[in-house]
C-alpha cells in the first residue's frame, strides 16, 4: 500500500504523458476541414491508411534515422575520449575545466548557438577564413546550409549529455582493474579494450540512447542551419501543422515516429545486452 502511494506522483506524470500520446492517436482519427486550419469528425482511419501507404514521410523517416545514427556515432567517437579524459585525468583542475566548458554550453539557448554556428561555419566564417589564411584551402568549404553544418551543431548540442552520462560510467570502473590488467602484462591500449571499454559499455549504451533520442527529435538546427535541405521528422511534422494545417495527419506522423523511435531504442538496448553477454565470456578479441 505504502509503496503504491510513493509511486503515485510518478504514475500521475506517466499518465499525463500517456494521455498526451493517446490524444495524438485520437486526433489522428479526425480530418482537416479543407482550406482551413480546423479539425472535424467523423472518426475514420483515413490518416492512418495514408501514413501506412507511406509516400510522403518514408524518405523523411529514413533520412532522419540515418542522419541521427551518424550524429550519434560521431558523438560517441568524440565524446568517449573526452569522457575518458575527464574521468581519468589526475589533474583536478583539468577535470573541472573540461566539465565547466561542457556544462557552459547548456547555458546558451539553441537559437543563440545556431547564430554562433552561422558565424563560425559560414563561407566567410571563422573556420573558412582560418583554413584559407593557413593556405589549406583555396575556396571556402560549404559547410553551412548542408547536412554537415547541421550535424556539427547537433553533435555539439548532444555532446555534453553523452559525456556527462559516460563520465560516471567510466569513473565507476575501479582503477585497480586497469592496474590489474597492466600488471598481468596487458599494455594500456589492450587494457582499455578488454577492461575499461566493456565495463563502461552500459554507460555508453545509455549515452547513445540519449544521444539518438536527442538527434531524432532535432528541429531547430535543421530549420536554421539546413538551408531548407535538411528536413527531419520534426520539421516534417511542423510543416504538416503550420504549412498544410493538417493537424490530424501531423498527429498520426508523430505517433508513428514515436513507435519507430521506441523500437530503435529497444533495439539498442537489446544490442547492449548481447554485447555484455559476449564480454562476460572473455572480452573483445578473446
Amino acid at each position: 500500500m505504502k509503496r503504491n502511494l510513493t509511486a503515485l506522483p510518478a504514475m500521475l506524470a506517466l499518465a499525463v504523458l500517456a494521455g498526451a500520446y493517446g490524444s495524438f492517436f485520437a486526433t489522428g482519427l479526425l480530418r482537416q476541414v479543407p482550406g482551413t486550419a480546423s479539425v472535424a469528425g467523423p472518426a475514420s482511419a483515413e490518416n492512418y491508411l495514408k501514413f501506412f501507404s507511406g509516400a510522403g514521410q518514408l524518405p523523411v523517416f529514413a533520412d532522419t534515422f540515418i542522419f541521427s545514427i551518424i550524429v550519434t556515432l560521431a558523438t560517441v567517437i568524440i565524446g568517449y575520449p573526452l569522457a575518458y579524459f575527464i574521468a581519468r585525468t589526475e589533474s583536478r583542475f583539468l577535470r573541472v575545466a573540461f566539465l565547466a566548458v561542457l556544462v557552459a554550453t547548456f547555458l546558451s539557448g539553441s537559437v543563440t548557438r545556431a547564430y554562433g554556428w552561422m558565424v563560425i561555419l559560414g563561407n566567410r566564417g571563422l573556420l573558412n577564413s582560418m583554413l584559407m589564411n593557413m593556405g589549406l584551402i583555396e575556396a571556402p568549404l560549404r559547410i553551412l546550409y548542408r547536412q554537415l553544418g547541421v550535424g556539427i551543431a547537433l553533435v555539439h548540442f548532444i555532446l555534453p549529455f553523452f559525456v556527462l552520462t559516460v563520465v560516471g560510467g567510466i569513473r565507476n570502473v575501479p582503477r585497480a582493474l586497469e592496474e590489474a590488467s597492466r600488471d598481468l602484462g596487458c599494455g594500456p591500449v589492450r587494457t582499455f579494450a578488454k577492461v575499461t571499454l566493456p565495463l563502461s559499455l552500459p554507460a555508453i549504451a545509455e549515452g547513445m540512447a540519449l544521444s539518438l533520442a536527442l538527434a531524432l527529435s532535432a528541429f531547430l538546427f535543421p530549420l536554421m542551419l539546413g538551408g531548407g535541405r535538411v528536413r527531419l521528422v520534426a520539421n516534417y511534422i511542423y510543416d504538416q501543422i503550420f504549412v498544410a494545417f493538417d493537424i490530424p495527419f501531423a498527429a498520426v506522423v508523430s505517433a508513428g515516429f514515436l513507435v519507430c523511435s521506441c523500437g530503435a531504442l529497444m533495439l539498442m538496448m537489446a544490442l547492449q545486452k548481447a554485447l555484455l553477454r559476449r564480454f562476460a565470456t572473455g572480452g573483445i578479441g578473446a
Partner: peptide, 10 residues
C-alpha cells in the same frame, strides 16, 4: 541556391 530560407531574419 545557398539556402532555401524560411526565416527572413536569418
Amino acid at each position: 541556391v545557398v539556402t532555401w530560407y524560411s526565416s527572413d531574419t536569418t
